[in-house]
Computed example of a mutant assay.
Amino acid sequence: MPAGLMFSFCVFLLPSVLTHMNLVTIVILSRGKCGLSKCVTRYLVTMATADLLVVILDLILRHIPIRYMEQFLFIRSIPLCNIHAALLYAATDCSVWFTVTFTFDRFVAICCQKLKTKYCTERMAAVVLGTVTVLSCLKNIPWYFMFTSRYVLSNKPWFCDIKITNYTSLGWAAFELLHYILTPCVPFVLILLLNALTVRHILEASRARRRLRGHSSGESPRDPEMESRMKSIISLFVISGNFILLWTVYMLVLVANRIGWITRHVGIPLFVDEIGFMLQQLSCCTNTGIYAVTQTKFREQFRNVVKYPFLVIVKFIKR
Rank of each mutant, 00 (worst) to 15 (best):
L53T: 09
R210P: 01
I268T: 15
T168I: 06
T165Q: 13
C111H: 00
K33E: 15
M69N: 06
R319F: 15
W143P: 03
N166L: 09
F237A: 00
L170P: 03
T99V: 11
A196S: 11
C39G: 06
F316T: 13
A48E: 00
I317Q: 09
E176Q: 12
Y291I: 00
A173M: 11
G267R: 14
S8M: 08
R229C: 00
Q71L: 09
V293C: 13
P79W: 05
L212W: 05
L57I: 11
T296E: 12
R303M: 13
T101R: 03
A90T: 05
V45P: 02
S217Y: 15
S30V: 02
T121Y: 06
V199E: 01
S217F: 13
R76Q: 11
L178T: 04
V199H: 00
D105T: 05
L80F: 10
A125D: 09
I26G: 06
Q301Y: 03
L61P: 01
T121G: 06
H63A: 08
V293L: 08
F107V: 04
F72N: 09
E227G: 01
L279E: 06
T131N: 14
T296D: 12
F7A: 07
I110L: 14
S217P: 02
N140R: 11
R62W: 05
G130T: 14
T286Q: 07
E176C: 10
G276A: 08
N155W: 12
I83K: 07
I83S: 06
